[in-house]
Design a protein around this nucleic acid. Structure first.
Lengths: 350, 350
DNA sequence: TGTTAGCACTCAGGGAAAGCGAGTGCTAAA
DNA sequence: TTTAGCACTCGCTTTCCCTGAGTGCTAACA
């Protein structure tokens, strides 16, 4: 069967009306919204075709039509108008970005919050490294006989440090030598190789040193495998309950549980595209089969990629969400991407 | 009116039954649960008295009785049996604690998760400093001409560091001198005084130094006022929806919103008591007026106090929650409290 | 061949009526 | 002070009916 222009137009009307009202739309109402004069009977014929082709479905026999997942997909791919943001909307986004975003670590969480107030759907935010992080340099600083500080500089310009207690006193002169040892053997290698290297050293250094080296290397290993930067933040999750499709408490609970207690499994982009949309059953997680997700990513520094996801019912306002989210992500990249240092915009301070 | 022993006994039965079933309890059912043979009519007289005194209320005329907030309060204060944990339960808690809790920063979040699986109610977790944190020591490490690392050691044994870019090259020899300057002037003082001190130095050092000092002091100030350690974590928030009192979507949404999007306003202890219970209307936040909160705190190191809160309907199982939570908090204190260093239990490693 | 009017049919949702049953308060006797 | 007896209350469930929106089909029309 042919998907004529008129059928597409009808589908678009149904999708947009349903997105707006969450009510099925009948032939008569559609006829009124159509340009030109067409009778509801004609529309009914078209509706029957669209249903048969799988773009529309009926909640029950005597109700109007609602879009199917396939219908939304066609809408998103072909029918949706990709209206660019108005200057006012752009300004609003830029304004919200100007502000106290200094620490790289906070960018991700704050970006999620901002996105949520921007699109008014629940959002989640995360980040990951584009390539593996390694240690760039070690530094051991003496504190007193009982402790020293291990400073570890990572390849992504983060610097981490921790106070270490020692069981038996180390003469301060030993620390630089140990730093040197660490810097020659334990930089620019993945965490997995560290233990092997360490074992190789075990008979070349005195046991007291080995113990301390072990501690530092262990700490570095933890940093490299640290997944706290893969932490997922959600914002406005409870808004999901204000959508009529989630008035049912069990449905709401299923999704809420997924969003707040199981954040780690929220979808991540599978392509390099700047934006990805998953509609209803396209989601792999069961909990999301009746929801849609819009994801966009942005750059943080030159080795991190931030992710923002928007969760909503399948009838989410794709056009608006996609427009705002992509502009927002671009702005974030402009602001935080490709820059060695996180906090550098304070050049001209007193 | 007198609150006789028998009245208390009846109240206890009503509270515990209601906690268990969420159903009002009638005079006949109570009579059966009472030791000795007492007719339901007698119970009815007692119930009328208890209602008049404000310990019980009726959802409607022809229903049984349920406890009022005042009734729960009496139950918690006097009637509840503070059964200590069985050895098995204790073992379960200790087992769950043994594990990958190394980084102080992760203790708080993990403790919340563990508590949630322990009590099976939603929980939240946070921490705060007992006394103000100050800087103990600064250290500036050269990296290259364009940058250096600022290491800041705090009075609570945390060590923080950040890479700093400089606009014009600094000769490496300057860094130790600047460290010295920082260590003499900017340690052991609150963040508020830092700016003043800095201004006092403005005409004693060359402008290039001043610029860098400013950067480091600013960074230190951020650390001291950093509120990321006041971050609140919630676990299992969506469980709230499985309680019949929150089957109503609007009630559920109100509470969920408070717990996941407004965590910062969840209650904190107002006393130094090891455990505090807020019942229904005793809560200040409107969102919690129909819920109860059990809070316990524990020590982290010698200057931090962790908090775990349990949220549930007013008919939450106070006895079990209180018993488990207090034991859990004690265990945490035993494990992480009063210790200079976070990760020290690996004494006898190879 | 596509469009339209007409018509019988379907079905979810809402409201009224009725019956059920758990539980109460009150009275009077033990 | 306790108990048995009894009339009464009231939320909940079920049943029934009605309404109205919307459909699919048929037959006539352009």
């Amino acid at each position: 069967m042919e998907l004529t222009e008129r059928k597409k137009q009808i589908l678009k009307i149904v999708v947009e009306s349903y997105i707006d009202t969450a009510e099925p739309l009948g032939s008569k109402a559609i006829a009124e919204k159509m340009p030109g004069k067409i009778s509801s009977a004609t529309i009914r014929n078209e509706l029957a075709d669209l249903s048969e082709m799988g773009y529309l479905e009926q909640p029950h026999t005597s109700a109007g039509r609602i879009p199917s997942a396939k219908g939304y997909r066609l809408y998103v791919n072909e029918l949706m108008e990709r209206r660019p943001l108005s200057p006012e909307e752009q300004a609003a986004i830029n304004d919200s970005l100007r502000g106290e975003l200094r620490q790289t670590e906070q960018v991700v969480a704050r970006a999620g919050q901002m996105a949520q107030s921007l699109v008014n759907y629940p959002t989640y935010a995360a980040a990951d490294h584009r390539s593996a992080v390694t240690v760039k340099r070690y530094e051991l600083l003496p504190v007193d006989e009982a402790s020293f500080i291990a400073v570890v500089m990572l390849s992504d310009s983060r610097v981490k440090s921790q106070l270490m207690a020692v069981d038996l006193p180390v003469e301060p002169s030993a620390l630089p030598a140990m730093s040197h040892l660490l810097n020659t053997h334990f930089t620019a290698i993945p965490a997995q190789e560290m233990n092997g290297k360490l074992m190789g050293l075990s008979d070349q250094v005195v046991p007291e040193w080995f113990l301390l080296l072990n501690r530092v290397v262990e700490y570095a290993g933890e940093l490299l495998q640290d997944d706290s930067h893969t932490q997922v933040f959600t914002s406005g999750a409870s808004r999901i309950m204000s959508f009529p499709e989630f008035r049912d408490i069990d449905k709401a609970q299923g999704l809420m549980h997924f969003m707040v207690d199981n954040k780690e499994n929220l979808p991540v982009p599978t392509t390099d595209a700047p934006m990805q949309i998953l509609i209803g059953p396209e989601n792999v997680s069961d909990a999301l089969k009746e929801s849609s997700v819009v994801m966009a990513s942005y750059d943080i520094g030159d080795n991190m990629r931030g992710l923002i996801g928007v969760v909503g019912p399948t009838r989410m306002d794709y056009a608006t969400v996609a427009a705002r989210l992509s502009y927002f992500a671009e702005s974030l990249t402009r602001m935080f991407g490709k820059r060695e240092l996180p906090a550098k915009e304070e050049e001209g301070n007193p």
